[in-house]
């Protein structure tokens, strides 16, 4: 154990960091695109079905295949990895945002509109706060997916803890495989936990469960 850390310690820290920021960037862009899109789609329910359908289709592409498909478009390295992970993160966030917004009582929306709120004010002050727990659930789900799938990014030169795991596989060194896997699991758990905390803070005080 100590030998392992002595030999791979600095590499482990670096790879973990790599994995973390690859995932974080993908998730960040995922949220930045999927949340506004999900909100927008509640204003166009017919388009919503099509868009969510497309996002669902993207989700069915095997992860390894999606990563491979990025190579002709973006070459190898971090960029194609981030793009692929970003695509994966979209669906859970998009679908949850849409469902959360849809679930807001239409009578409530009608009443705030009738009082003179603009669409934007209604979304910001009424609908998003109410939909927040559902949106956050989607984000947390995406975060866990993205972190574990980021391991595969090493196949297309994206770096991360996948490098250790695949090295372990090729050289048949189980300690490398385990050494690469455990930090991924810990990272997923820690991120999910912190997002849970964030969810609490963002959820209106009397809507918390």
């Amino acid at each position: 154990m100590l030998d392992f850390l002595n030999e791979y310690g600095s590499q482990l820290i670096f790879k973990t960091w790599e994995q973390f920021y690859t995932s974080a960037l993908a998730l960040f862009f995922g949220i930045a695109v999927a949340v506004p899109l999900g909100v927008l789609l509640t204003r166009a329910p017919r388009t919503a079905k099509i868009v969510i359908g497309i996002a669902g289709m993207l989700q069915t592409v095997p992860s390894l295949a999606l990563l491979a498909l990025m190579i002709p478009l973006f070459g190898i390295g971090k960029l194609p990895a981030i793009v692929a992970l970003f695509i994966y993160s979209l669906l859970p966030i998009l679908r949850n945002t849409y469902i959360g917004m849809e679930k807001v009582d239409p009578q409530l929306k009608d009443s705030v509109k009738g009082m003179g709120m603009t669409n934007l004010q209604s979304i910001r002050h009424v609908e998003i706060p109410i939909a927040m727990p559902v949106i956050m659930a989607g984000i947390r789900l995406s975060a866990v997916y993205v972190i574990s799938w980021a391991t595969l990014a090493s196949y297309i030169g994206g770096g991360g803890l996948g490098d250790l795991i695949f090295n372990g596989l090729n050289l048949f060194q189980p300690d490398l495989i385990i050494g690469g896997t455990i930090p991924v699991a810990i990272m997923a758990i820690v991120v999910d936990f912190s997002l849970g905390k964030l969810e609490k803070t963002l959820t209106p005080i009397n809507q918390r469960t």
């Binding site: 009578q107 409530l108 009608d110 009443s111 705030v112 009738g114 009082m115 709120m117 109410i130 809507q207």
Partner: peptide, 21 residues
């Protein structure tokens, strides 16, 4: 319409109070 609605009170059957306010 937004200006108009602010001048006209509106009460619906389901009350429509905003739960988190």
């Amino acid at each position: 319409p937004v200006k108009l609605r602010k001048k006209i009170g509106y009460v619906i059957q389901n009350i429509g109070l905003i739960p988190h306010m």
